[in-house]
Design a protein around this nucleic acid. Sequence first.
DNA 1: TCGCTTCTTGACCCGGCGGTCAACACAGTG
DNA 2: CACTGTGTTGACCGCCGGGTCAAGAAGCGA
Lengths: 211, 211
Amino acid sequence: MTDDRRLTSQGQERKQQLLDQAATLFAERGYADTRVLDIVQAAGVAKGLFYWYFENKEALFRELVELNRLNLRRAQAEAIDLDAEPLGRIRQGAEASVRYMAQYANFFSLLEVENLEKQFADELRKGTAIHTADVAAIIRAGVADGTIRDEDPEVAAYGVVGTVGYYGHFHRTGRLDLDPDELAAFVGRFVVCALASDESIARRVLAARRS
Amino acid sequence: MTDDRRLTSQGQERKQQLLDQAATLFAERGYADTRVLDIVQAAGVAKGLFYWYFENKEALFRELVELNRLNLRRAQAEAIDLDAEPLGRIRQGAEASVRYMAQYANFFSLLEVENLEKQFADELRKGTAIHTADVAAIIRAGVADGTIRDEDPEVAAYGVVGTVGYYGHFHRTGRLDLDPDELAAFVGRFVVCALASDESIARRVLAARRS
DNA sequence: TCGCTTCTTGACCCGGCGGTCAACACAGTG
DNA sequence: CACTGTGTTGACCGCCGGGTCAAGAAGCGA
């Protein structure tokens, strides 16, 4: 199994190059329309080399998705102030996600990935499920403290995850020509207003700044 | 061109059968993983018959997407009371869309389709673009009359379209086990709260009933 | 220099899938 | 019944893309 392969630093660089090129191409064309040949040509290497580093096309894709998921999660964790109130945390996480997706436009949102290939659906839903569960836990706390409308936290969490995913998608596909920070701020307002139990709470949360 | 073919009633039934079977399979497996052979086997006919009715697999898919788009649009138009205030219309359209998608689970939301195949992307965005423009026009009126928060109507419209699309997707893929009417009502609340300029307006709109 | 390991190449293989089309069946009409 | 048009069949074809692997190159350490 290529996963257990010990690579020299040169090997690691080569592998990363393939991953980078693949990420760009998958984002541009989708998984199905990106051939292994396209990836290796973009990297300037021969086709057989691909299989030294990856078991197959699918394995490379899964590795990319997992990397993306972990990086997104890290960006969210870094942006979220654990001492903030629940709705503030929702806002921070949503804004961070939008920024992350704008910055790494060659990685696509989890929901886009989820839709792309049915063969990956069950496993790829893992990212969405984890993110949704995180958001739901925060919403539950917000409902309990009265700052978030009394809705089912699981259901509401899908609204946050979906909003982030869609705005990432529209931005990446060129239909929203906004500065990433502007877009992140808009998405933050959207989800805060959607969830806040009244407008004074929404106003307070949106006025909060984190440095 | 098979589009100009005059079909007997028998031919029309056969063609519809193929479309129906294809819709189900595309929804279950995606376009790429659904072969022409799968479709004709599901319909109980021979493979060559497919090409009597459709130029190719792609043509069938495009026809399905167009049918779906028109039907969704019709469902929205029927649900929207033109005399209602803007935010109420937004709510009605969103709820109708969610209901439509729950009812026709073998047709998928426009945004899902959009993501599926890059080869169709430009044309398939037509549905999203039309829907978004409709919603934006309503939002613009709502911003003008002060009932909708002062945001860019185009940007906000993507939030409505995206929310509907995502909730349709989660419901269809079994992660939201809600009655369609319940789900529609939730989505209606979500978008109304996200957009309303203050909570008394949100309350008024959500209290409104249309028989 | 030699031996071993890692990395790289590209011609080739093969299975799968979209699409073809000659032959045939069926239905309707004069 | 003969003719015409519509509808149907399935063996076959060709192309494409994922994957293979023997041969060779490069790198490293003794």
